[in-house]
């Protein structure tokens, strides 16, 4: 199926330089996978540093295949993106129906005798300048809730695709030495991380330097783990997770995939939740 005519992109050859910068494995704690996989092999990703521009590979982390090697369902991802765009969209388009158009209360001409077609109002949809029959009525919300597990599988599929296409990186934390935006720009450039980067940390309170550095740059964005969504992951070329964020995201997704009682999540979404 794959002939040698297909160009091979994004192959990272381990250089002597990157291998020599490996820290000793005893310094980094290996990851313990909850719900150990019985058949699918766990995925592996480098744990990189973030405090120097030069890339230092510190350790290899194992990722759960249920989250990071899930079926890359592009149609589920499409459904998620469509939902994210539409659920908060309100259409303000408005057309007037025959009752809203000014005038048209009187019968224009008598029913019989004139030889003309019979009409009751000059604003009926048959008339020029008459009302629109089933036109848009403002405001029209397009709110709907995507099924719970479609959203879960959207996240797992996107994370799997990001990892498979070498767009997922794991760093120790978001601590940088300066608040200079150039530091982050040069780091991203040298590591070939793609023009736009999404940094995901565990909580929404982030170190001062990184917030100051990325504030002015529109294509580097910081996000807490609870804000992780399919649209943002696809909009940014590279996804960078901190170790803590990775643990939190993986544990949350695995909890939902192995939940004891998922009935409250799968029931119809109530707008009035008291």
């Amino acid at each position: 199926m794959f002939s040698c005519t297909i160009p091979k992109l994004r192959i990272i050859f381990p250089t002597a330089r990157s291998l020599s910068s490996l820290a000793s494995p005893s310094q980094i704690e290996p990851r313990q996978l909850a719900f150990p996989p019985k058949y699918q092999q766990p995925r592996q990703v480098w744990l990189e540093n973030f405090d120097t521009i030069e890339e230092k590979k510190l350790a290899i982390l194992e990722l759960h295949p249920e989250v990071f090697a899930a079926n890359p369902r592009v149609d589920i991802i499409h459904d998620n993106v469509r939902w994210q765009s539409l659920y908060r969209y309100v259409s303000y388009a408005h057309t007037k129906s025959r009752f809203e158009v000014r005038g048209g209360g009187r019968k224009p001409w008598p029913q019989k005798g004139l030889g003309r077609a019979r009409h009751g109002s000059i604003r009926s949809p048959l008339f020029r300048g008459g009302g629109v029959i089933h036109g848009p009525k403002s405001p029209n919300p397009h709110f709907y809730m995507l099924p719970f597990y479609t959203r879960i599988h959207g996240l797992t599929a996107t994370l799997s695709i990001k990892l498979a296409q070498d767009d997922l990186h794991v760093i120790t934390d978001l601590e940088i030495p300066t608040d200079d935006p150039n530091f982050v720009e040069e780091l991203v450039k040298s590591r070939k991380w793609g023009p736009s980067v999404l940094f995901v940390d565990e909580s929404d309170i982030m170190p001062r330097n990184i917030t100051a550095a990325t504030d002015s740059v529109k294509h580097f964005n910081l996000m807490p783990a609870y804000g992780l969504n399919v649209y943002s992951m696809l909009k940014h070329d590279t996804l960078v997770l901190t170790r803590a964020a990775l643990d939190l995201i993986e544990s949350k997704l695995l909890t939902h995939l192995h939940k004891n009682n998922s009935v409250p999540n799968t029931q119809k979404y109530k707008l009035n939740q008291v």
Partner: peptide, 16 residues
């Protein structure tokens, strides 16, 4: 997932 290594990056413009 193996195929995706050689396909263009999945982005907002690629979805169907």
């Amino acid at each position: 997932l193996q195929m995706l290594k050689f396909l263009p990056r999945v982005c907002l413009a690629n979805l169907k």
